[in-house]
Design a binder for these strands. Structure first.
Length: 348
DNA sequence: GGTTTCGATCGAGCCACAACGATAA
DNA sequence: CCTTATCGTTGTGGCTCGATCGAAA
């Protein structure tokens, strides 16, 4: 009996072996290209975030109770084979979808976080940010999404900003940062990639301090319809007054929509309570209405979540895994070049 | 529960050579 | 300043092999 149970558990845990597809070839080539571009010598091994992630995730769960549907929180920011994972890892997908539920707005990338006023949340950026778990950007965007711990750390903010500056300096080259470097800089044994998470905390402690020319923005937007945030399922969501301490108030109210958006990231609009007679409602009716609204809010939250998961899946399926060829001529030459056991050989 | 075995997967390296880029004449 | 020649470096794809990981025994 016990043995049978153990066997069943093993079978459940068993992961299907990966089947190579045409996209994998491109993926492999990209890695090879990056590898050769970076250095010819053997690179030092980068610390896998997987273990870190486990511990981090557990800690975060203890402190923030992030809703997870599975205990298997294996980090997989860059699913190499989305076509295989779609059905197999729905639960995992949901977790990732939670991570990037705000991906449409780019809020989970560093660009989205730090450069909200100037960044574009294009798919390319997303892909780049998701492309590898060892880049600072990817890991930080990850931990920002998870890291909802409220903690100030100017040093870490500076570190992330430095990384972003370096990225700007070398726009075409991905910056590789060894985890050990980050750890050294921080000088403790904390999870190194938590910087952005704490950055998120800073954002929750401090208001957004964007210096925007609101008049110019309004003028520029005047012919583009209302200032609504798209992405909500049913009701339009207005841009909140930035002078409201919406972040803190939502946090203090304990609002959590089950998205990891414990307030802050999801702006809410009070429901309009109108009767046919006008704006007045009897107290009892208001009470009943409040309960109904609560139920509706739950249903709506579930609907929003489902919609967002759907959006995430669609985006992931459409993600391009194609290889970027720098010199098409060389590719043509290499294709024509005779090979023996995969190696190039001299022409006769 | 610990150890060993086995199979799948991954990553690094190899190869020839045209193209590229820098430098000198 | 422009052109030409030279030389070292880069990039390209398919295959192999050792390392790694997880499941099974």
């Amino acid at each position: 009996m016990v043995l049978d149970l153990r066997k069943e558990m093993r079978t459940k845990r068993r992961m299907p072996r990966k089947q190579y597809t045409s996209s994998d070839v491109g993926e492999k080539t990209i890695k090879k290209s990056l590898r050769k571009t970076r250095n010819k010598t053997r690179k030092p091994k980068y610390l896998s975030l997987r273990l870190r992630y486990f511990s981090t995730d557990q800690k975060l769960q203890e402190s923030t109770e992030i809703p997870t549907t599975t205990s298997s929180a294996q980090l997989n920011l860059f699913p190499l084979h989305p076509e295989n994972l779609v059905e197999e890892k729905d639960a995992h997908d949901e977790n990732v979808a939670i991570l990037f539920s705000a991906a449409d707005g780019g809020a989970t990338t560093l660009n989205g976080v730090l450069g909200a006023a100037s960044t574009s949340s294009s798919d390319e950026d997303m892909n780049k940010n998701h492309s590898t778990t060892t880049t600072l950007s990817a890991s930080d965007s990850l931990t920002f999404a998870y890291g909802r711990r409220v903690r100030d750390s100017e040093e870490e903010v500076a570190l992330v900003k430095t990384a972003m500056r370096n990225k700007e300096r070398e726009p075409s080259e991905e910056k590789w940062v060894s985890l050990s470097e980050v750890v050294e800089r921080r000088g403790d044994e904390e999870v190194s990639s938590r910087g952005a998470a704490d950055l998120g905390g800073c954002w929750r402690n401090q208001r957004l301090s964007l210096k925007l020319d609101y008049e110019e923005i309004l003028n520029a937007w005047s012919d583009k319809g209302p200032l609504y945030i798209h992405g909500a399922v049913d009701s339009p969501q207005t841009v909140p007054d930035i002078h409201d301490h919406f972040l803190a108030s939502d946090l203090s109210n304990g609002i959590n929509d089950g998205w990891g958006n414990s307030g802050g990231c999801v702006w809410r609009v009070p429901e309009l309570l109108l009767t046919s007679k006008g704006n007045e409602l009897a107290p009892i009716l208001i009470e009943v209405k409040a309960e109904e609204q609560q139920e509706q809010a739950m249903v709506k939250a579930a609907g929003q979540r489902e919609a967002s998961v759907q959006r995430y899946k669609e985006k992931r399926q459409n993600r391009l895994f194609s290889k970027k060829i720098r010199y098409e001529v060389r590719k043509l030459n290499a294709d024509k070049r005779p090979r023996l056991k995969g190696r190039f050989v001299k022409r006769d």
